[in-house]
Write a protein that binds this DNA or RNA. Structure first.
Lengths: 201, 201
DNA sequence: GTCTATACTCTGATAGAC
DNA sequence: GTCTATCAGAGTATAGAC
């Protein structure tokens, strides 16, 4: 909805988006059906289409919400802060997001895997702009000898890759670990160790 | 085909599987259609179903082939070898596979993302068994002080995550890097640096 | 072995009663 | 605002000619 008015409209709209996130993140865009979303939402299929003009509109609404949430932790990396603290803070925040919002992580992964048809412009625009700015900061810290030298953009890729892996490949991680493990708690400790060793000047 | 006989059967069967890999890896199972696969293969839709009994049979055939290829580089890690050489060899081989077989990597990623409905048994079986065995080797090397101590299984996750990221998120990597980059060449150098720092005793 | 034609099901979306 | 009924199109799979 462009401008939800009543509370009931807002509530139903939110219910639909939450159900759609469940379904889209598990099956991808084309693998999901309005019937599935309607059932999870507890609403009829025509009622979904009363709130959103089409299946694609629901998907687009989710992706739009997503990108801002996605960029926030990186935005928070402060050029005035202590380099190691700022970077490790980003690593831990990103992992927390993977733990707390795995559906969003999978929705994003599905979209990128399939060539980012609906989100490529945003990646080439906002995302690249932000990454370029943060890379300049990282490079500055390296030039000052505050952290070990390396290609900054690949450091960022490594943070994304390692944190999102525990959300996107959750099924595999749990199957390989076996019972009696807490994947995200272990990941938190391991990534702390990994990035501290990597960044040590 | 359970038992391809003639050369023409083998050839068409391979053509279909190659086309199906193109389509399934780009759109996921449900997002792909027999029409798309038939067009890429240059065959008619009924002809596809002459060689394979169903769409799902084609997908399953691809996944079965996949798992062995997937496990080979890890199998090659030799307990008698020099620890750092063996591990770095695995990292580089895995990245080469991501570079040379990105479709296979995405097919696997799609399957895991969607809860591994058709491959979970293999992951809990063959894959876990192999990982457990290799973790024992890694742990032994750590106990000997040959490499730095860390949870072995998370080291393996890190290798998978970082190498596959460059194949699975290729679109995003290229969009963020911008023109004039060779993602896999840069990744090869960066991962070499990362894992050497991580493993240094 | 390969094609045209088609049966049948699923799915996105609309019409219209309430 | 929400529902039942339904349409139109896409998609998997089969029948049968060649």
């Amino acid at each position: 909805m462009a401008q939800p008015k009543t509370r009931i409209q807002q509530k139903n709209s939110d219910t639909i988006l939450d159900a759609a996130l469940d379904v889209f993140s598990a099956s991808g865009f084309r693998g999901s059906t309005l019937d599935q979303i309607a059932e999870v939402a507890g609403l009829s299929k025509p009622n979904l289409l009363y709130y959103f003009p089409s299946k694609e509109a629901i998907h687009t609404a989710l992706l739009s919400e997503l990108l801002d949430t996605w960029l926030d932790p990186l935005r928070a990396m402060d050029p005035e802060g202590e380099p190691l603290v700022e970077i490790m803070g980003y690593v831990h925040r990103k992992l927390e997001i993977s733990r707390d919002y795995p559906r969003e992580s999978r929705l994003f992964a599905n979209e990128i895997l399939q060539g980012a048809p609906r989100i490529l412009a945003a990646i080439e625009g906002d995302l690249k702009t932000l990454v370029d700015a943060k890379c300049a900061i990282l490079q500055h810290w390296m030039d000052q000898g505050k952290i070990a030298p390396m290609p900054p953009v690949h450091l960022i890729f490594a943070i994304w890759s390692l944190t999102q892996h525990y959300a996107d490949f959750d099924v595999q991680v749990r199957a390989v670990l076996g019972p009696g493990h807490d994947p995200f708690a272990e990941a938190d400790a391991f990534l702390d160790l990994l990035f501290r060793r990597l960044l040590a000047a």
